[in-house]
């Protein structure tokens, strides 16, 4: 979550120019977003250890008000289900974000550095993927699958995000490939793969980080949406998205069964979006 933390400032540098990390800390949005994201992530990670009841433990009659948030459609404790149901979403969304960032960056940089025909063909195919609403790609593939596996969701969510990252990465890389240090490396006879890895990529960190933050928001949304539509790796396991549709029937009598997962998804996505916006703003003001 706090990937910017690796730029820890030395005390000496701090007195001269504020580092990106320090500038980020002055951004209210970034700080608020990171704190929210971190809290929800901690809740999702440690929830299963602290939950008062088991994931599939029946504690009362269905849709009763036993326990702090009542019970769900099978009489399971809603709070415990909430504490169990975030980890899968968090892990799948994180892995999908990493996957889409790596893949998208590679596609974008190869297109920008390759230029000419490469660029034209790659970006045209990329546009085709963009012509596909994100949720549609997942739905189309899930048609022929009985029970999705976790890795399938990672790949699907990642693939539907990658073209968007690729577009950004290409734009950033286009500004870099004609710079002097790239020409210098070419003149020295460096291999193309090495120029991409050692010269171009390290200069793209900041914009890619902001993009990855945005992708994380979309990944969480997409994973939760897929669960909400009823496609989960394990129908019995708790999942924030699935909980909404499971308990939807009794919304007028036992609202927490639906509202608790809805609110936590809302808080989580607001947190990641504020964080991503904060990173983007730090980048924009990086020059001053």
């Amino acid at each position: 979550m706090t990937t910017t933390a690796d730029a820890a400032p030395t005390p000496l540098a701090a007195t001269r120019t504020p580092s990106a990390w320090q500038k980020a800390l002055k951004q209210k949005r970034f700080v608020a977003g990171s704190v929210i994201t971190l809290l929800v992530a901690l809740f999702a990670v440690f929830g299963p250890f602290l939950a008062p009841h088991g994931e599939n433990e029946v504690v009362g009659t269905p849709f009763s008000s036993a326990g702090p948030l009542g019970t769900d459609y099978l009489g399971q404790d809603v709070l415990s289900r909430l504490m169990y149901g975030g980890l899968e979403i968090l892990v799948i969304a994180l892995l999908a974000t990493v996957f889409s960032t790596v893949l998208g960056t590679l596609i974008g940089v190869v297109a920008a550095y390759g230029g000419g025909w490469w660029d034209e063909v790659i970006m045209r195919l990329n546009d085709v993927m963009l012509a596909f609403p994100q949720i549609l790609l997942s739905l189309v593939v899930l048609t022929a699958v009985n029970q999705p596996k976790a890795w399938m969701l990672v790949v699907l969510v990642g693939l539907s995000n990658a073209p968007r990252t690729a577009r950004i990465a290409r734009g950033v890389a286009l500004g870099l490939v004609s710079r002097d240090f790239v020409h210098a490396a070419e003149a020295l006879g460096e291999r193309r793969s090495r120029i991409i890895l050692a010269e171009v990529l390290p200069n793209m960190n900041a914009p890619l980080l902001a993009e990855a933050g945005l992708r994380l928001t979309f990944s969480i949304t997409l994973v939760a949406a897929i669960g909400f539509l009823g496609f989960t790796t394990d129908p019995g396991a708790a999942n924030w998205g699935q909980m909404i549709s499971e308990n939807r029937l009794a919304m007028s009598t036992q609202a927490w069964g639906v509202l608790a997962p809805v609110l936590i998804i809302a808080v989580f996505t607001i947190g990641t979006n504020l964080m991503a916006d904060g990173i983007a703003q730090v980048n924009q003001r990086g020059g001053d």
């Binding site: 939760a224 639906v258 509202l259 809805v262 809302a266 607001i270 979006n273």
Partner: peptide, 18 residues
């Protein structure tokens, strides 16, 4: 606006229903 932009559409829908 930034916070609203983050909300998934089904979350907005369910909150409106509530």
């Amino acid at each position: 606006m930034l916070a609203m932009a983050a909300l998934p559409e089904f979350v907005i829908g369910i909150l409106l229903v509530a």
